[in-house]
Amino acid sequence: MIFLITLFTLMYLIVSYTSIYHLQLNILNILRIILGLGYCFFIFTSVMHIPGNMKFWITLLAICLLMNIEIAAYKHKFNDSKAKRILDIFSLVIALMVIVIIAIYI
């Protein structure tokens, strides 16, 4: 399961940064949003068996990753390079946190 979550996270990050920084196509923007929502749903359904509130915190981290990438897309539109760099680092850290926390609890 950790392998699938890692692959889905990498796929989401690659599609997101390709659609933001390299190819500004409407179809890729729509795919980025659909993949983000699918990623949050996949994370939520894969951690349903974890007891307590930790499953909601992990899902909240996935939602934060989705929002962080969408904010990075917004900042790229206005060419704010400092904010883009900080948001990219936060996106990688949040993705790593999701993977590590799920690996600990599964």
Rank of each mutant, 00 (worst) to 15 (best):
I94P: 02
I30A: 15
I2K: 12
T18K: 09
I106L: 15
F78A: 04
N29Q: 11
L96P: 00
L28D: 12
F78M: 06
I58F: 07
L96A: 15
M54L: 15
V98L: 11
M97E: 00
Y74N: 03
V15Y: 09
L87K: 01
T59V: 13
I71L: 15
I14E: 01
Y74Q: 01
S91M: 11
A62D: 13
V47F: 03
I14P: 02
T9I: 06
I86W: 01
I58L: 09
Y39N: 04
W57S: 07
M67V: 10
I99S: 10
A103H: 11
M67P: 03
I27D: 05
I30W: 13
L96G: 14
M48T: 13
M48F: 13
K82N: 10
D88E: 10
T59L: 09
I27Y: 14
L60E: 07
L25P: 06
P51F: 05
Y105C: 08
S91P: 03
I33P: 01
S81E: 01
R32V: 01
N53A: 12
N53S: 07
L61S: 02
I89G: 02
L13H: 05
I34H: 12
H22R: 09
G38W: 14
I102D: 01
N79W: 05
S16T: 10
I14K: 03
S19E: 08
L7F: 11
M11H: 10
I2C: 07
F42I: 00
A72C: 11
I2G: 12
L7E: 14
L13V: 05
Y12C: 05
R85H: 13
I2Y: 14
F90N: 08
G36N: 11
E70W: 07
F41M: 08
T59W: 00
V100I: 15
